[in-house]
């Protein structure tokens, strides 16, 4: 019984994490049209920085090397992880957002992701290279001393609260004049600029906020798994987040939730826990990738707006009588 509870709690936690990642991508791409092809790099930076902030100082004999090691409490570590991801988003934005059109911007994000992957993987002094960080302390766990299944449930609640806060903030942003201005830059950058919008600033905001979201997803990941290595954040993971957003509905936070459930939980994580086939251990992961790819293709072919499309903007209801409805100049034919 306990193991099933733990399993479902784990799936729930992954759901929350992927949800945060895809809402972050939605803020970047769905709101502001920024093609971020290195989502998972922001997750890794957030996770790593929170990891080294909450880990103790590195032990000389342990052969595990990393920077900082500050033994900080979890709220501070969370803040550090989120800030680090935001700063990285800002740095990439500085390079890519001022002059580049969307397709070149996408190339810059992809390149930045590869550079950081190589840098972190090959330099064992920062985050212990390809070995990665292990034994990252979990919030509450030291204090409460729960068994793994109870802790999974507790962490699920924690992740759900974080997700809820981020969800509310993302929707407020979406419904605000700021979100509207971001959508205008997505629709036509040059026109938004000609109508007085500082498009560079708007897109930078979306880039940084999205990166912070993804960074927080990374912090939750490293806390729950207690470890993080470059193998876990390759390009294919970025694809899973993109697939979730595309299947769910670009521009729609509700779509991001549905997409995270369908793609990230149902296809990606559930199949991860299927018993391996001993004669061909790589079969299930490969079938999983085929399934996610096929789902994206089917969505784009038959329902390009996604399962739950971006909805039309709603405005405060006004009494009809207060609005003149007849045109100032009547056209014979329009």
């Amino acid at each position: 019984m306990g193991i099933i509870v733990g399993y479902i709690a784990t799936l729930g936690i992954y759901f929350c994490i992927y949800n945060i990642l895809s809402i972050g991508l939605n803020i970047q791409f769905g709101y502001a049209g920024i093609l971020d092809f290195t989502v998972i790099t922001f997750m890794a930076i957030g996770g790593y920085m929170a990891g080294v902030a909450s880990l103790g100082p590195e032990q000389p004999g342990s052969q595990i090397f990393y920077i900082l090691g500050l033994s900080l409490p979890w709220p501070v570590a969370l803040l550090i992880g989120a800030t680090a991801a935001g700063l990285l988003g800002c740095a990439i934005g500085l390079i890519a957002l001022r002059r580049l059109r969307s397709d070149y911007l996408a190339i810059v994000t992809l390149a930045a992701g590869s550079i950081i992957y190589g840098l972190v993987g090959n330099n064992s002094k920062i985050f212990d290279g390809f070995e990665g960080l292990v034994g990252v302390p979990q919030p509450f766990n030291g204090v409460l001393g729960l068994n793994p299944n109870s802790y999974a449930l507790l962490f699920l609640g924690f992740a759900a609260v974080v997700m809820a806060v981020l969800w509310v903030a993302a929707n407020r942003l979406r419904n605000s004049p700021l979100g509207r201005a971001m959508r205008a830059t997505r629709e036509d950058l040059e026109v938004a600029e000609a109508y007085g919008k500082n498009t560079y600033k708007l897109r930078m905001m979306a880039m940084v906020i999205g990166s912070v979201y993804v960074g927080v997803g990374g912090v939750l990941t490293i806390w729950y798994v207690t470890a993080m290595a470059p193998a876990g954040w390759g390009t294919s993971e970025t694809f899973v987040v993109w697939a979730a957003l595309i299947v769910g509905g670009v521009g729609s936070n509700g779509g991001a939730v549905i997409g995270s459930f369908l793609v990230a939980v149902l296809f990606n994580e559930v199949t991860r826990f299927l018993p391996g086939i001993s004669s061909d251990p790589s079969l299930i992961p490969e079938v999983r990738n085929i399934c996610i790819g096929a789902l994206v293709i089917l969505t784009l072919r038959f329902r390009p707006q996604g399962v739950m499309p971006e909805r039309k903007a709603r405005f405060p209801e006004l009494p009809e009588a207060s609005v003149r409805q007849e045109p100032a100049i009547v056209a014979e034919e329009v």
Binding site: S176, E187, E310, K312
Partner: peptide, 29 residues
């Protein structure tokens, strides 16, 4: 003509006013 295609007609107009209070991040959130 370069409208914002995937935004409603009313929303197209609502983008235009300058210096809207809700375009500040802290106010929006």
């Amino acid at each position: 003509s370069r409208e914002y295609p995937a935004m409603t007609v009313l929303e197209n107009l609502m983008v235009s006013p300058m210096n809207q209070e809700g375009e500040k991040l802290a106010t929006a959130l």
